[in-house]
Design a protein around this nucleic acid. Structure first.
Lengths: 209, 209, 209, 209
DNA sequence: AATGAATGAGGGTTCATTCAT
DNA sequence: TATGAATGAACCCTCATTCAT
């Protein structure tokens, strides 16, 4: 059995049923092996959750890192959202999993939360910087960060890879909307390709794949 | 024991630990009674979850109903977001709880999902109508509805009543941001009181309570 | 509420579901009162079982006592069976309840078992005496007593007061069959009224009520 | 642990304490394993009861099938009783268990009752056929079937393998008594080996082993 | 690498019983 | 006489985990 599949399955189940609502029997059954066999790959149920969280955070970090190259602060934000949505919708492994209290060991939880917090604070810094140089509308960075995080976390609850939209389309649309929310003036801030989408799709409505 | 307290406690726990991560012993212990006593109020653990969901939906419905009086479509949306955020931050009972697969009985789940879907579709209709009369920027109503729902659902994960912000402040800020995202032109669409807030708070940053 | 009804209901439930399979909630619900109210009549669940047993034994004792007047040993046996079957089929109170191990307190169980044993031994004495004076076929009294007891105990499992047979008909038929089993010669031992039944019913088949 | 032992133990306990009066802890304790281990063999407490019932019915069916070879109707009946008593007294697995209402799932209960009913009706047919060809005394087949079933069901309540009688002795004695009950004339119907028993045992009293 | 069997801990639920009202 | 609320104990069952094979 491929280890990769194990984590994808776990991510899927944790996301749909929650950590405590997922039993190792569920996973084993889904993978076509026995509960006992799982212990050849993982030492713990917790480890599964932990690793899934780690990969999710790595993906978020990557999305952020790759967005840093953008020129403007708004551009960075827009790119970061785009990257992250793309990642989430592309691989079932990269799921934003809601962290249930007490599911992870204290140190693990602390580590995950610290990593998330670091990402969040970096994100807030971008917003604050953008506000300072007037490329982003005055707003509260912390609140806006939460607001956007919520939108991103929710994707896994409704996005269906077999549905009408590709991940890139969703990524494009969401990043555009958030950019719109943050840009001090709609007209001058929107990047060129959004214009293309508006044209192609007619009134910016997402077209089916 | 007050029945109200029971539901608030349950909502709190389900939100923090997930449905399966919450044991009746946790609840009972928190309430200062025994597990068995819980069964004088509820017939089932499931019923607790169900009722919490029902009340959450009622609150959302109320938020929507009370927003209908607004003149413009954007105004309705803004008011709805404001109302709902206010409700969520005000009472621990009104929590947007993530529905874990299989936690509710099939008919219950169906009912809850149907109700949520109805709210969602009404919300989408507002967006679509706004787009049609050009009071809302061209966008995909379904996607935007999901995007906003995510932001609202996430609130319970980070909002702290003992923190620096009042619920009304958060409600004001979030509804303003979403309005900004949707208004075709920022300047002309923003309602008067947002201007007041901008003034009072200095650059729209949320002030501490 | 009539106390009598309580015991009848209890007897019915114990018989259908067993002692442990009957909850006080079942009884209370059936009686239209609350569990707590039951404790105004009985101090214990056990007491219910105990009293039902006592009455069942009293009925058996009465059946035996009233049969002693018969002239022959076989006549006594026949009458005893007739009386007991009549009692069982007449009143829902008089049920032969199978005694589950550990249901009664040790002393109570001992008492009930002693009483049953006394009845049984008296019954065996009749058989033995009959064998001695050749009015009953040579057989093992103990085994025959068990055999007949089984037939009697089973009645509550199948007899339906609303069915085609009256209790007296069943009593007549069963006592006749057992008498047949025990009489050294069928022709000379059968009492007169069996002849009547044979005549009336055609070939001894039980007629509908 | 041998699966066979599990069912024997279960049968024993259900018989002595009733289904609801038997806890899995009792069984596990008796078997020297833990409650949880039971679930490696059975999916349910109910399944234990169900399987025990099934085996009991299979034994009854076998007893009936093997009796069909007998020439006369009375002979069949006699043999069937003999076979069944032998089986019951031989193996603790083959216990006639009283079915408590609601202990089995509706479909299971229906199945068991249907099977029992089939056996019962076949038995009644034998009686009726015997009455028709005058090899059995005129009587009501249904009532007689109940009467005999009761005698058989009761055996498990009193028979003690460590007691003075072997199972075959009991089987011989009971089948002889019922044959006596049903034969139109005692003298001519009794099979030869009963005579032997009468001789050996002195007046047909069962000798100790 | 895989598994069947076993298990301690705990989870949801029922139950007989008590008691203040 | 009746009851709603409370509870300790027990019950059936599930779960994560282990281990010999």
């Amino acid at each position: 059995m491929k280890e990769q599949v194990l984590y994808e399955t776990a991510a899927h189940w944790f996301n749909k049923h929650g950590y405590h609502g997922t039993s190792l029997a569920d996973l084993a059954n889904d993978l076509g092996i026995t509960k006992a066999s799982l212990y050849n790959y993982v030492s713990d149920k917790r480890e599964l959750l932990y690793k899934v969280h780690v990969r999710s955070i790595e993906a978020a970090k990557a999305a952020q890192d790759q967005a840093m190259a953008e020129d403007t602060w708004l551009g960075k934000i827009r790119k970061m959202v785009f990257n992250y949505v793309s990642a989430i919708t592309r691989s079932p492994m990269v799921t934003f999993i809601v962290l249930e209290d007490g599911a992870l060991a204290p140190e693990q939880a602390e580590e995950i939360l610290a990593a998330r917090s670091a990402l969040d604070h970096e994100f807030r810094r971008w917003i604050a910087a953008g506000i300072r140089d007037r490329s982003i509308v005055p707003c509260d960075p912390k609140l806006v960060s939460f607001l956007i995080t919520g939108g991103l976390a929710w994707i896994t609850k409704w996005y269906d890879p077999d549905g009408p939209w590709t991940g890139e389309q969703v990524a494009e649309a969401m990043s555009a909307m958030y950019a719109r929310m943050l840009s001090p003036s709609f007209a001058e801030e929107l990047p060129a390709d959004v214009g293309r989408i508006l044209t192609e799709a007619g009134l910016f409505t997402l077209p089916a794949k």
